[in-house]
């Protein structure tokens, strides 16, 4: 029952959010600002976790290969496919849900409890659209780049780990990351990234937008925004995978 109410209100909010923008030039400016705030500001964290994950996946895979008959290039292949299929979209999505999601929920929630949203409404501005639309568009635009970045950096991290630990030769690793490459996996990863970008921005925005009370409630909304967007990411991960990869 409660879930249904949430869904209804979320839907209504999105309908308001995607109403015709009141002034394109301002929305454009806002979107650029959000790209900087949500995307450019996340490059650092995406870079760091991707390097280390690529490294760890490579080392783990290598050290688990005990049978000498299994070719070593499988290590590169595993690192590549793990990054593309799961890590750069889903795990990065979860991490961004924490970083970007809490930021959005607390920003919008604070605006709600300090009546800044009311102030917008009173000026005759569609507050939902003004505040949320640029964030969603910005994330949908910039997150695919973060995804690509994560893939490259992760695979590079694997290579560095392989070579510097002496676990694998450069030639084996490179052969592996070229072996049986399926471009469709990139499409799959991109689709997930775009869907997750929508979830990461709209769900916390929803929780922030309907905050009642004060700073305490803003904190709670921020937590809820992160938790629910994470759950939805995991759910849609399964759904999209079934839709796109099932044979």
């Amino acid at each position: 029952m409660k879930l249904l109410t949430h869904f209804g209100r979320y839907y209504m909010l999105m309908a308001k959010t995607f109403a015709k923008p009141q002034k394109n030039s301002i929305y454009f400016k806002q979107t650029i600002k959000e790209i900087d705030k949500l995307g450019i500001n996340s490059i650092g964290i995406v870079f760091i976790i991707s390097v280390f994950m690529g490294a760890v996946i490579t080392l783990q895979t290598r050290y688990n290969l005990e049978n000498p008959l299994i070719p070593l290039y499988l290590v590169g292949l595993t690192a590549r496919d793990t990054m593309i299929l799961e890590f750069s979209s889903t795990i990065v999505g979860l991490i961004l849900a924490g970083k970007v999601g809490s930021n959005i929920a607390s920003e919008i929630g604070t605006m709600r409890v300090t009546e800044q949203i009311d102030a917008l409404e009173i000026m005759g501005i569609n507050s939902a659209s003004y505040l949320i639309f640029p964030k969603i568009i910005a994330a949908i635009f910039i997150n695919p780049f973060l995804n690509i970045l994560s893939m490259f950096v992760g695979i590079a991290g694997g290579w560095v780990a392989a070579v510097s630990s002496g676990a694998l030769s450069t030639a084996d690793y490179l052969y592996g990351i070229h072996y049986a490459f399926i471009p469709y996996y990139i499409v799959y990863s991109m689709v997930k990234t775009v869907v997750f970008a929508f979830i990461i921005t709209s769900v916390p925005a929803y929780h922030g937008f309907y905050v009642k009370g004060g700073a305490l409630e803003v904190g709670k909304a921020s937590t809820k925004g992160v938790v629910y967007s994470s759950i939805l990411i995991l759910l849609f991960n399964v759904i999209i995978t079934q839709l796109m990869l099932a044979k």
């Binding site: 920003e107 604070t110 605006m111 300090t114 009546e115 800044q116 009311d118 102030a119 409404e121 009173i122 000026m123 005759g124 569609n126």
Partner: peptide, 19 residues
């Protein structure tokens, strides 16, 4: 919304855009 563009409102807490 049209009529609201003729409104000016000063909220009890100010409600200035803090960013």
């Amino acid at each position: 919304k049209k009529i609201r563009q003729e409104f000016g409102m000063v909220f009890q807490g100010g409600a200035l855009f803090d960013s």
